[in-house]
Write a protein that binds this DNA or RNA. Structure first.
Lengths: 254, 254
DNA sequence: ACCTAGTTACTGGTCAGACCAGCGACTAGC
DNA sequence: GCTAGTCGCTGGTCTGACCAGTAACTAGGT
């Protein structure tokens, strides 16, 4: 009949109000909150409560605090970093394997490619081509630039897919994978042959998307990921990825 | 050459150490941290720093603090709640639509069903049947029980899929969707006809999984979700979902 | 008039100390 | 042996203080 009312702590009520102000759009990214001491007056709580609230919001990626600045805490544009951090924690505590993550990325990536192939405009296509050409022209050794352009390329596809949530998850997952195998990835990245293979895969993908060939576009995502990671996985995990290679490619079944 | 060293704050170093202890398994779920005052001595920082650190870890779902208890903060078993909260924030700030979420769920759900159909054991199958039969036997009005069993059913499928990450994301997404349309969902849940339609869909799904018919299992997920949500979406969003209905169902193409 | 250098009033980060309410174990009284 | 009160802890909160920065303002020199 009655629900338990559960003691609420002062800082929780502060978090709630600020959170609400951000989610409702009352506070937009780039805006600044008043300084801690002023918030103390407005909320009528002690400074420690305000600070604990700000720490929580900061750890969620909603705020950025810069010591010394007279502007106060800034509302962040994106809380992706916080999300990544929590996901990363989850992956570690739950002992989620690289294989599971790669498998997941095959699923989400192929869906993104499929949707992109169906919903793309010429502008999207142009953005993909542009990023890929820039990658091709990147001089050896400039890993930073290459990686940045790669992100840009995948961002273009994500945009074309029309599903921002898919974009988000794909970004987070690929970061997670990098986290999980930092060293191996770094070694690979410096290899020259890999760069051109990246660019070539992108070429094929762009072509499939240009042709609005959804089956081919999604198959490329799965196959590329499989080829790239298979050597890092044991036989059982490989088998699980292979299940997805056959799956959902109508025309290869013909 | 040199990387910027970036000022670190006391509470951040505290968070880092405790986080590490948890991720490394040194602290297992259910364990208790020393009390705040003792942590103050061990870390050699002020109590506010320790408290801010604990607040962050708590908001990440890694700790649970219970006032008054002489045991100290408890290490939590699962931080799913924190994850859900952050995702929920993301969905709201980015203005992600219901259509995008449903589309995503169609993707992830169909993949889960497909994998489950390929990797299931008889035990998995039995767990699904058991949950579904219990749902069928639930007396009208007991929404709580029905909802709980539904979760259990989907959990069984998730287990069979063999991908814990897929499980996690599916859970979070379905919670997100519920969040986003609390009222509409609640109305629907009370309707009697819907209950039996749930059970029937599950019947069909179990059958497909039992037959190891991946295409049918994944198609059921997409079709069910589409049927359930289509009326809540506008024409453009519906069209985007329909793209997925055709996609990746080899045998319906025959 | 302009530019530079120092001052100043803020910011967040940290600490110490105090008080409260609540939980749990121990203890004195029935 | 059981109950009821006490006591020592817990986390939650507030206050007041100090520090190291930042940035704007101001006084000096040109």
């Amino acid at each position: 009949m009655f629900k338990p009312v559960g003691r609420s702590r002062a800082f929780e009520r502060v978090v709630e109000q600020i959170e609400q102000a951000i989610y409702s759009g009352e506070l937009k990214p780039g805006d600044h909150l008043p300084s801690e001491r002023i918030l103390v007056e407005q909320f009528e709580v002690g400074r420690s409560s305000v600070r604990e609230a700000l720490r929580i919001l900061e750890s969620m990626g909603l705020l950025i605090t810069t010591p010394g600045s007279p502007l106060g805490p800034k509302v962040s544009a994106s809380n992706q970093a916080g999300l990544l951090r929590m996901m990363s924690g989850f992956v570690q505590t739950q002992g989620i394997s690289l294989g599971a993550l790669v498998q997941y990325r095959m699923i989400a990536g192929s869906a993104a490619n499929f949707l992109a192939s169906q919903l793309r405009t010429d502008e999207h296509l142009e953005a993909m081509r542009e990023a890929n050409e820039a990658m091709r022209a990147t001089e050896p050794g400039d890993e930073d630039r290459f990686a940045r352009l790669d992100v840009q390329f995948h961002q273009a596809i994500a945009d074309a897919s029309g599903n921002p949530f898919l974009t988000l998850v794909n970004t987070v997952i690929s970061d997670l994978i990098v986290d999980l195998m930092m060293s191996a990835y770094h070694q690979a990245e410096t290899e020259q042959g890999l760069w051109s293979s990246f660019v070539e895969h992108h070429d094929a993908l762009i072509e499939a998307i240009a042709d609005r060939d959804g089956a081919r576009a999604s198959a490329i995502a799965r196959q590329t990921l499989y080829d790239f990671y298979r050597d890092l996985l044991d036989a059982e995990e490989q088998r699980r990825l292979e299940l997805l290679l056959i799956h959902s490619t109508p025309d290869t079944n013909a």
